[in-house]
Design a protein around this nucleic acid. Structure first.
Lengths: 338, 338
DNA sequence: CTGGTTCATGTAAGCGCTTACATATCACTC
DNA sequence: GAGTGATATGTAAGCGCTTACATGAACCAG
C-alpha cells in the first residue's frame, strides 16, 4: 500500500524540482507558468526547458487550494440516452471550455445514492447545474445552494434558486392549435403533466389551445416518456381503449414509438390519426411521415447554464426569474400537413 | 475582478471551524468524516452536529493535495452527437461512480486548442481515457502516458499504451458475407478506411468476406461519417457515378442518410439496392426497411475503460494487447432479408 | 499502588502550489 | 557618486486537509 517506493515515479516533478533544475525559485517557476508577471526572457526559457525535461505537470489540487477555487463546474443529469441530454451537455461543456472551466459530470441514473454523489460533487467544483428531473430532492438542492451557486435546468421553480429553461407553454399552444386547425377534434395529450414542469407546461399549452377555440380538452393520458411506454399505449389505443384523431405526445420518443406501432397495425398516419411530438430528435426527420414536433434550443440551454454558473461564481447576483429560451415549431407531415 | 469582497461568502466553514464548534481537534473531525479510525460515539455526534450546523462541505482540493490523488478520471471524447458517445460516456460514468471516482469530461470538438485542454485535464485527474478519434496527436497521448495512466478507446494501437475496443473485423466480415450471400455482387464499401482503426477494420472485414468467396472487392468510396456526406454520396450514386447493388456503410448515420435519399429518388431498398450500416442507432429500428447493422457493446466499452483506468491507478501493470469486446450482427430487412 | 496496555484524542508536519512583500540589481539623473 | 526608480527575482506565509506520532486517561494485573 501507499507509495511502493518506486524511486523514479513518473509524476515526481513538482514546482520545487523544476525550480531547482532551472536554478530559480519556485515563485519564478509559478510566474512563468501563469504567464502573469514580467519574467526575463532568458529566465523564462530556462524554466520552460526544465519543465520540459522533467515532464512536469502541475498538480491541480495544489493550485486550487492556493487560489481557493476549483475552476470547475458540476453538471448533474439524469442520464444520456436520447439526443436531448447529450446536446445539453455539449452546450454546457463548450461554454465551460470557453470560460476555462472543467466540467465534472454526475449521472444520477447510475447512482444508488445520488445525494451522496451530489454532496461529493460539491466538494470539487465551484458551482453546480442540476437538471430538473435528475430526481434530486428539493431540499438537497437547497442545501447545495446554501454552499455553492446552483442553477436548475428545466426544473421546478424553487424559491431562491436560479433557473433556466426552454419555453414550453407558448409553443405547445401553437402546436396544439396547429393540429386543431387541421380540423382534428379529438386530440389526446399523451404524457404525464405531473412528471415535471416541462410536460406540465406542454399540457397547459394544449389546454390553452382548446380554450382559445372554445373546445374542451380531454384528460391527459398519463404515460412515462419512453419508447416502451409509447408502444404499450399504442396497443391500448388499437384495442379501442381510447378514441382519438390526433395525438400530441410529450416527447418524440413517445410519438415515434406510437406512430410506428400504429402504422405496423395498418393505421394511416396522419390519415386516420395525426401524431406530433416534442424535441425534434434525429429520427423525427427520417421517419415517414416526418414527425411534426418542436425544436428546443438544447445546446444553448446548456451553454446558458454554464454561463450563469460562471457569472454566479464571479459574484453576480442570482436572477429572480427563470430565463426562458424560445422554442420553434417544426412542421412536417405527421400532423396532417401536405 | 477577483473576490468582490463579499463579506459573508457561503463556504466559510473549514475543518477548523467545525473542530472549534464541536470542541475537538481537526484530526478528530477528519477522522469522523473519513469514517476511518475509532472515534467515541459521543464525539462523533458532536462533530456531525457541528458539521450540520455550519453547513460544512470539505474542500476537495485540500484533500486531494493531502492524499495525493484526485479520485477522478478524465475522459476525452470528440463530441456527443449520436448515441454512440453518449452511451460510452454513460458506461464510463457508471463504472467510475462504482469506483468512487469523479469524471471530468473534455469534448475536443468544442475546443480550439485541444492539446492545452488535455494538458489541463491531466492536472486534475489521476488517469485519462482518450477516444481514438478525438484527434489527439499520438505524441500528445504519449506525453500524457509519461505522466498518468492512459487508455485509448477504439484508437490506433500505440506502442506502450493500453487500448480497449469493440471487435470490428470479424463482424464486418460476417456482415459483408451476409450481403454477398444474398447474391449481391457489386457491394460498395462507403467510408474512409484511413479515418481510423474502426473503419479500417470494418473495411478489412469487407475485403476478407470477398476473398472468402473468391470475389474481388471494389475500392472503398471514401466519405466522412456524417449525414451530410451520406446525402452527397447518394446524389453521386443517383447520378450514375457509381454502380452498386449493395452498400456497406461505415456507420448508421451514413447508411440512413443514403438510404433515405435513395428512397426519395424512387429507388427501392433493398429491391434495387441493399444498404447496411454499423452501430445500431435508435433510428435504425424505425426506418423502413429496418436497417441491418452491427451492435457494439458501447456501454460495456466505456465501463471497461473506467475499470482499466482504476486498475492502472491502483498500480496494476498495463496490458500488452488491446482488450476487444464482441459485437453483434443485427439483421433487419435493408440487407435483402424478408 | 504501580507499571503496562489499550483506546481516544491532540499536535504538528507536510501535500504543492500562489502571491504579498522584501530584496537585489541596474540604469539614470542631478 | 549618491539617490531614485524600475525591474527581476527570492522569501515565506498560507490555502484546508490527512496522518504519523505523541500524549493522556482509563483500566487492569500483580
Amino acid at each position: 500500500m501507499g507509495k511502493p517506493a518506486s524511486p523514479e515515479a513518473k509524476p515526481g516533478a513538482t514546482i520545487y524540482s523544476v525550480a531547482e533544475h532551472a536554478g530559480v525559485s519556485i515563485a519564478t517557476v509559478s510566474r512563468v507558468l501563469q504567464g502573469a508577471a514580467v519574467v526575463a526572457e532568458a529566465t523564462r526559457q530556462k524554466v520552460l526547458t526544465a519543465v520540459d525535461e522533467l515532464g512536469y505537470t502541475p498538480l491541480g489540487a495544489a493550485r486550487s487550494l492556493a487560489v481557493r477555487h476549483h475552476e470547475a463546474h458540476g453538471l448533474v443529469l439524469p442520464e444520456l440516452s436520447g439526443p436531448y441530454y447529450a446536446e445539453l451537455l455539449m452546450g454546457f461543456e463548450a461554454r465551460a471550455a470557453e470560460l476555462d472551466q472543467s466540467v465534472v459530470l454526475v449521472l444520477t441514473g447510475s447512482r444508488t445514492d445520488m445525494v451522496a454523489a451530489v454532496r461529493q460533487l460539491a466538494t470539487r467544483v465551484d458551482a453546480i447545474a442540476v437538471f430538473g428531473s435528475a430526481a434530486i430532492p428539493a431540499d438537497v438542492v437547497r442545501m447545495l445552494r446554501a454552499k455553492k451557486p446552483v442553477v436548475v435546468i428545466a426544473g421546478e421553480p424553487h424559491d431562491g434558486i436560479e433557473a433556466v429553461a426552454a419555453e414550453n407553454l407558448g409553443s405547445a399552444r401553437e402546436l396544439a392549435g396547429h393540429v386543431l386547425d387541421h380540423g382534428r377534434r379529438r386530440v389526446l395529450f399523451v404524457g404525464d403533466p405531473d412528471s415535471g414542469p416541462d410536460v406540465r407546461n406542454r399540457h397547459a399549452g394544449y389546454v390553452a389551445a382548446h380554450r382559445d377555440r372554445g373546445l374542451d380538452a380531454a384528460e391527459p393520458v398519463r404515460v412515462a416518456l419512453s419508447e416502451a411506454d409509447g408502444a404499450a399505449f399504442a396497443q391500448r389505443l388499437l384495442a379501442g381503449e381510447h378514441e382519438a384523431d390526433a395525438l400530441m405526445c410529450a416527447n418524440d420518443e413517445l410519438a415515434l414509438s406510437i406512430m410506428t406501432a400504429l402504422q405496423d397495425a395498418g393505421r394511416d398516419v396522419p390519415g386516420d390519426i395525426a401524431v406530433v411530438g416534442w424535441d425534434d430528435v434525429m429520427t423525427s426527420r427520417y421517419v415517414r411521415p416526418g414527425l411534426t414536433t418542436v425544436r428546443q434550443p438544447v445546446h444553448e440551454l446548456g451553454a446558458l447554464a454554464a454561463s450563469r454558473l460562471h457569472e454566479l461564481v464571479s459574484g453576480e447576483p442570482p436572477r429572480e426569474d427563470a430565463q426562458t429560451l424560445p422554442t420553434q415549431l417544426v412542421v412536417r407531415t405527421s400532423c396532417g400537413c401536405a
